[in-house]
């Protein structure tokens, strides 16, 4: 039991449950899920569906952060993949055909994968600091997307493309299966092979891992590629949700939300040990927080303050030092010896 209490993921899960409880108390309808034409419908389902783009981006970000890196370009990459896919579909003579949509999606994702590899090249081969290397694409990416759409919001009608984000599969939103698939594939690859451990070792000490025979360059290079790929899929989901390529607003500030989700989940920005499960919980916290604001009717002008307060509370709850202080205030037994896991003590702006 004590071990369970010390588990890092406990705190984010507690925060998530507290948020859900807060909503449920203020309006019980928050928890209600009804079936409509064989599709589940309700706030919780909306959260599952709307969290998909952030989920994909945050998973990629987790891997990048584990190597001591950061990828600021994910939002811009979302804009690019959406712009590419929708331009292909709107220029095609058969926007409703499955083939066109498949080509469009593959093209959009392939381009961001290449951009991701470019980021990885700058970081691992050229040796530019990750924040600078990805800043380039963060600033230029939206320009590229605007160039592709000609400065306008490209809109389309295409049933198969709409399926990506708005469709359902066995009662659940299709987008939920996309993020579920990404979670499963990534967890299997990093936890069932040595890749996860190697990534962590690169993050903890790149030089030592290189001397120990770990190909750190290849690992760092590929995590940025994966991050680009996932951002590409996220961009497809985003554009499919509104059936429009909004180059100015697609994925805006999502890089910050993704970093936040990673940190809320308990992965340290200093690199090294990472937790995918924590990131998943972190994403749900952020998405539930967005719904909470509408449900509680927080006035728009104070929304950022409300969000910041929740984030600060969660981050403080995670900090080992704060917990130790709290346990000292409480009349408890002597503090037990600490575990070896790194602890998040930073609060991103």
């Amino acid at each position: 039991m004590r071990k369970l209490l010390k588990h890092r993921i406990l705190w984010p899960i507690g925060a998530l449950l507290a948020l859900v409880l807060l909503n449920a108390v203020s309006r019980p309808s928050f928890l209600s899920i009804t079936v409509r034409d064989g599709e589940l419908y309700g706030s919780l389902i909306d959260i599952l569906r709307n969290s998909a783009p952030l989920m994909l981006v945050a998973l990629g970000m987790t891997l990048v952060i584990a190597t001591r890196g950061i990828d600021l370009s994910v939002g811009a990459q979302m804009a690019i993949s959406g712009a590419v896919a929708l331009t292909i579909i709107s220029d095609s003579k058969t926007p409703g055909s499955l083939g066109t949509v498949a080509v469009a999606i593959l093209a959009g994702v392939a381009i961001t994968f290449i951009f991701g590899l470019w980021n990885g090249f700058l970081v691992s081969v050229v040796g530019i600091q990750p924040i600078i290397a990805t800043l380039v694409l963060m600033l230029a990416g939206r320009g590229i997307a605007l160039l592709i759409t000609g400065g306008f919001i490209t809109t389309i009608t295409s049933a198969p493309y709409a399926q990506m984000s708005q469709g359902y599969l066995i009662g659940f939103p299709f987008a939920f299966f996309v993020s579920l698939g990404a979670i499963l594939v990534i967890s299997l690859v990093v936890r069932r092979t040595a890749l996860g451990v190697l990534t962590e070792s690169v993050g903890i000490n790149p030089e030592a891992s290189r001397l120990a025979g770990v190909r750190s360059r290849g690992i760092v290079w590929s995590v940025y590629g994966v991050s680009g790929l996932l951002a590409g899929v996220a961009g497809i989901l985003y554009s499919s949700n509104i059936m429009a390529a909004d180059a100015n607003n697609a994925g805006i500030n999502i890089e910050l939300d993704a970093i936040l989700a990673v940190v809320l989940g308990g992965t340290s920005l200093a690199g090294g040990k990472f937790t995918l499960a924590g990131t998943v919980v972190g994403v749900f916290i952020i998405q539930t927080l967005t719904s909470t604001i509408t449900f509680l009717g927080v006035p728009p002008a104070v929304t950022p303050v409300f969000k910041a307060l929740v984030v600060i509370v969660v981050c403080l709850a995670q900090s080992r030092r704060v917990r130790e202080w709290l346990s000292r205030i409480r009349p408890t037994r002597t503090p037990t010896t600490t575990t070896t896991t790194p602890v998040v003590e930073r609060i991103p702006a």
Partner: peptide
């Protein structure tokens, strides 16, 4: 934006 309009309306 369209995306935020949609999310808020869902809420």
């Amino acid at each position: 934006t369209r995306a935020d309009g949609k999310t808020v309306m869902e809420g």
